[in-house]
């Protein structure tokens, strides 16, 4: 067990001001409205492992990802990559920025349509001064294209000439161009068909093994996460509610929300397993429930749950689990 984590996040919090414009607010006598998108999120990722964040829409997964990469300033909390801290003012030092890249959900929006694929992939090399001359740059682009299963001749084409899956391969090649070893992937296959998703997930696993990549992998799809992750963090309304190694989480989910989520997934195996019907919907994050925000939907909720926010202890943030309460 290596001691030092590759990625470390401590007490991350992000509050968005979602108030009406000042004048309208004053005229209508409204208070400022704050939305706590992420609250008290802490986790670490070991070198070469995949940490997955799962949760439903609006649970704060992308906000965590954007804070970790330094794209979005956190309201509070600390972040570090390979022991190099993120400076709230200046971001990560240049040498580290090279090592940290991001892949997004929408392969159509994330590639500049006016640039040729070769230019797109070479851009991080240019930004970090990694190629000594154009020949070297071209050779490296060819190598990267082959690495992600494309043809070196594709370098002269434009993004619109590629399918969604091929574009995601291009995005992966670009992420690897600066020799990044930490990749943050936000729903990288959610816009893709399942057969294309399989190609991309297999590719990402191969690259991770061959290059020793550390991944922060975000998805709302539990089956995808089961395939990709070493460790999983389940988010609900901005908080981590459970963190566990993948085998443990699926074999013995402990948090009531994790169990509900697993029960909600359609049973493709058609095993006829018995399931609890899902209750209710995710509440409005502007006025979340008091105490444990899951309490209005939780079969185990009691009065303590309505007032006291459960803290993360031993991988679960739930009073019932901590009190060993079954019903």
């Amino acid at each position: 067990m290596s001691a030092k984590p590759m990625v470390s996040v401590t007490h991350a919090r992000k509050v968005f001001d979602v108030s009406q414009p000042w004048l309208e607010r004053v005229l209508s006598g409204q208070d400022k409205q704050m939305l706590v998108a992420v609250d008290d999120v802490s986790f670490t990722i070991k070198k070469g492992e995949t940490f997955a964040l799962v949760g439903e829409s609006g649970s704060g997964k992308s906000t965590v990802a954007r804070m970790v990469t330094g794209l979005l300033p956190a309201s509070s909390g600390t972040f570090s990559i390979d022991d190099v801290p993120l400076d709230p003012e200046h971001g990560y030092p240049l040498a580290l920025r090279r090592r940290l890249q991001m892949i997004f959900q929408d392969p159509y929006a994330s590639l500049d349509p006016r640039w040729r694929v070769g230019q797109i992939i070479a851009e991080p090399m240019k930004a970090f001064g990694l190629a000594r001359n154009e020949d070297e740059e071209r050779a490296r682009v060819s190598q990267l294209l082959k690495l992600v299963g494309l043809d070196p001749a594709d370098a002269v084409k434009f993004p619109h000439q590629f399918s969604g899956g091929q574009r995601q391969r291009i995005a992966i090649a670009r992420a690897l161009a600066s020799d990044a070893d930490v990749i943050v992937c936000d729903e990288p296959t959610s816009a893709l068909d399942v057969s294309v998703q399989a190609q991309i997930l297999n590719l990402m696993k191969d690259l991770q093994r061959d290059l020793g990549l550390t991944l922060l992998f975000i998805s709302h799809n539990l089956a995808v996460v089961r395939y990709m992750a070493d460790v999983i963090g389940v988010m609900y309304l901005g908080r981590l509610v459970e963190v566990a190694r993948v085998e443990t989480l699926f074999a013995q989910p402990r948090h009531p929300y994790t169990r509900m989520l697993l029960d909600a997934v359609p049973d493709l195996a058609m095993s006829g397993r018995s399931r609890q019907p899902v209750q209710g919907e995710v509440p409005n994050p502007i006025s979340p429930p008091s105490g444990c925000t899951f309490h209005p939907r939780c079969p185990l909720a009691n009065t303590r749950c309505q007032t006291e926010i459960p803290l993360m202890v031993d991988g679960v943030a739930c009073h019932a689990v901590q009190e060993n309460r079954k019903a």
Binding site: V194, A198, A223, R226, Y227
Partner: peptide
Amino acid sequence: SIPALDERPERL
């Protein structure tokens, strides 16, 4: 090609 909930294959 569909990842499953009840098992984790080596490859899809």
